[in-house]
């Protein structure tokens, strides 16, 4: 303690340069400068990042309803495709589920639906976009928005080839996952080495269709503003 007294006095005498404030001054100034720089970055990039998230979904929607080739042709011919986002609340067996969905119309006539659905996968939550025709009788396509399945095995659920199996499947009966080649019309061939991931996707699709069948009526849906 005694040694600290003269030490402290010396520090005071040597003035501002060695004071605590002078030392913290650099840190505070840097924090301020970097803080403003980051705020500027956020102001400039924030809306781009938000748009990326929305676009990822919106860009996929036409091909989930019309198929990849048809969607490209429609875009080339500049056929107006309207995408109206909305939400629907479903009450079933005492549980309540909410789905985000998109109603797709082509040149004003209803073309189909795209529903956002999520469920547990092998590693983490899998989020899907499921395309249905206008009367919700057949699946028109699925897309994997979010997944953290095993690289090299489970993440093959995202490949166009595997997903294409769902196209044109009827919504009358739940789909079943089989191994080593699907023969029945309601069968989905599992990804090799990733039966659980395959089952998870199929289960999410089945559950969503069961929840929404007969309920995809515009009157029951809360629509928000329109895109496209």
């Amino acid at each position: 303690m005694e040694q600290q007294q003269p030490d402290r006095r010396m520090r005071l005498r040597s003035g501002f340069k060695n004071s605590n404030l002078a030392q913290a001054w650099l840190v505070l100034l840097l924090a301020l400068v970097f803080g403003s720089a980051l705020a500027a970055v956020q102001v400039n990039l924030g809306h781009v990042i938000e748009a990326n998230k929305v676009n990822e979904t919106l860009e996929k929607i036409p091909e989930l309803v019309f198929g990849a080739d048809a969607a490209r042709k429609l875009k080339q011919r500049q056929v107006p495709i309207e995408i109206t986002p909305g939400t629907i609340a479903v009450e079933k067996d005492g549980r309540k589920a909410y789905y985000k969905l998109f109603r797709v119309t082509r040149d004003g006539t209803p073309a189909g639906w795209v529903i956002k659905a999520r469920g547990q996968g092998y590693a983490d939550v899998i989020e899907l976009l499921i395309g249905l025709d206008d009367r919700a009788q057949t699946i028109t396509g699925i897309f994997v928005l979010e997944q953290k399945e095993t690289p090299g095995l489970g993440n093959n659920i995202g490949t166009a080839r595997w997903r294409s199996q769902f196209v044109a499947k009827s919504t009358d009966r739940p789909l079943v996952v089989v191994k080593g080649g699907a023969k029945r019309p309601d069968a989905i061939d599992a990804v090799t080495g990733a039966t659980i991931s395959s089952r998870s996707v199929t289960r999410i699709v089945n559950r969503t269709i069961e929840d929404l069948r007969g309920r995809l009526i515009p009157a029951k849906i809360e629509f928000s503003e329109r895109h496209g």
């Binding site: 970055v41 956020q42 990039l45 990042i49 990326n52 998230k53 990822e56």
Partner: peptide, 8 residues
Amino acid sequence: RFLAAYMY
């Protein structure tokens, strides 16, 4: 932020 904006 840059990657999230331009290499999403």
